[in-house]
Amino acid sequence: MHNIFALSAQLQIGNTATPEAVQFWILAPLAVLAALGMLLVKKAVHSALLLAWVMVTLAIFYIAQGALFLGIVQVVVYTGAVMMLFLFILMLVGVDSSDSLVENIKGQRPAAITAAIGIAGLLLSLIGRATLNHPATGVESINANGNVQGLANELFTKYVWAFEVVSALLITAALGAMVLAHSQKVKSRTSQRDLSIARFRGDSLATAAGLPGSGIYALHNAVDVPALGPDGLPAQASVSRVLEARGDMISSTPFELNKIEEEEK
């Protein structure tokens, strides 16, 4: 930890400390390559992975520059939670599905372009301030009382209003997502209890202990051979309905037990 603070103390605009320069020239090209790759690769999961890599390199840069808390939180929130949700959805949707290119919300394009211009302006002004030797507060003065404490002080005193507004926005978004995803149930879900009652208080107790397994009491235990009941008749319920519909069921008569008994006699 000390090394990082010492490093950030040496760090000044225009003369970057050597270890940081080495680290930057190794990681930055990798990050740029990964970012380009994210746009160019075919599979959605690969591009999600490359994005995760970009986020991790960004976190390393933050840490190297003395913003330790920001770096770690970047990994926890973006790589750990947001990208994981992305992956989750990509896996649920399936690999082969292609994106639908129909725009069903109007005015999304101009809104996106406006937002992009806004962010570009912000970034440009920040980079400009840093490179044109605009007097800036150094990292060391901000980190004087510890990185986390300094950040907490800013967030909960000077920016507390902005903080609350953002959290209200996030809660609204989460509620909106819940409302959109919620569907009214027409009838209540059958619970394990209901199923159990239906099994035992129904007409017959034949399936109370579950369906019979395939092949039981026959001389063949493959999944496509029906079990034999105590009466010697094949139990149709013991074979999967899919196999039955496909016509893949084998008759169990050639495997009946009494045959062997006769042979032995």
Binding site: F69, V73, V76, G80, A81, M84, L87, F88, N147
Partner: peptide, 22 residues
């Protein structure tokens, strides 16, 4: 000894899940 050591462990754990998911 990071000043945010415990958060670091959480961060590492959340990256570790990638192994299982992938």
């Amino acid at each position: 000894d990071l000043p945010v050591g415990v958060l670091y462990v959480l961060a590492i754990a959340s990256v570790g899940v990638y192994g299982i998911v992938l």
